[in-house]
């Protein structure tokens, strides 16, 4: 579905990705792990078009993404739940969700299905998004991305800053999201959570892939070494 070959990217003169090879298949859940500054969020930015790819190949369902901007890429079916949720403060919960429909993609995800997945959002649909708790805001961010009916959903640190019970609730919703062959790429600081939720793990270190394997087969030592480089 998605194939990245020797991707490099930089913020001005500061190079952040040094040649990443990565792929994800239809219906697969892949966890992207790594220490702070390893390049996880930068990699997601290149996938969504927020940061240009300097060199390498990046293809989604056979189409090159290299010269497309973020607006074009979401129309192809790649949506992101950004780190820190990034809801629009001047929009209500429902208006935030409706922003997802701007991609113009047709599919089974609409307001009623998001409200079925997260019933609390229906109760709070007319409230400003900033008045919600952190967990509820994360639900809005996930619902907003789903409203674009993506083929590939990128989740950047969706557990960050949330209470364990809320994290469990959000991760419990993933199987319902994964219906119909959607693929999921999760960036997660909590390695244990990432391993449980995914079928495959890719670890980044200093802008390079340091480890890749099935979640069920990787040992703690392998991950520690790939994560910290020691």
């Amino acid at each position: 579905m998605l194939r990245a070959q020797c991707i490099t990217a930089a913020y001005g003169d500061a190079q952040a990705l040094f040649g990443i090879d990565f792929s994800i298949n239809a219906g697969e859940i892949v966890a992207l792990i790594g220490a702070n500054g390893a390049g996880k969020s930068t990699f997601l930015k290149t996938l969504t078009g927020l940061l240009p790819v300097r060199s390498g190949e990046l293809e989604f369902e056979g189409q090159s993404l290299r010269h497309l901007d973020a607006g074009d890429i979401v129309k192809l079916g790649i949506a992101m739940v950004p780190e820190g949720r990034r809801l629009f403060p001047s929009l209500t919960v429902e208006e935030n969700l409706l922003m997802g429909t701007l991609s113009g993609r047709k599919g089974s995800w609409d307001l009623s299905r998001v409200f079925t997945l997260f019933p609390i959002l229906q109760e709070k649909r007319s409230m400003p998004s900033t008045s919600l708790s952190g967990g509820q805001q994360q639900m809005v961010a996930i619902g907003r991305a789903l409203m674009s009916n993506p083929r590939l959903l990128l989740c950047d640190e969706i557990s960050l800053g949330l209470a364990p019970v809320v994290i469990r609730e959000i991760y419990a919703a993933l199987p319902a999201i994964m219906e119909e062959g959607m693929s999921l790429l999760i960036v997660e600081q909590d390695v244990q959570l990432a391993m449980q939720a995914s079928s495959r793990v890719v670890c980044l270190q200093e802008g390079l892939v340091s480890l890749e394997g099935k979640s069920s087969e990787l040992s703690r030592d392998q991950i520690s070494k790939a994560y910290f480089g020691i």
Binding site: D69, V74, M80, R86, F88, M99, S103
Partner: peptide, 12 residues
């Protein structure tokens, strides 16, 4: 509110 997040929604 957030130009970059708006781009992620498909806005130009």
């Amino acid at each position: 509110d957030d130009r970059e997040a708006a781009q992620l929604m498909g806005l130009k």
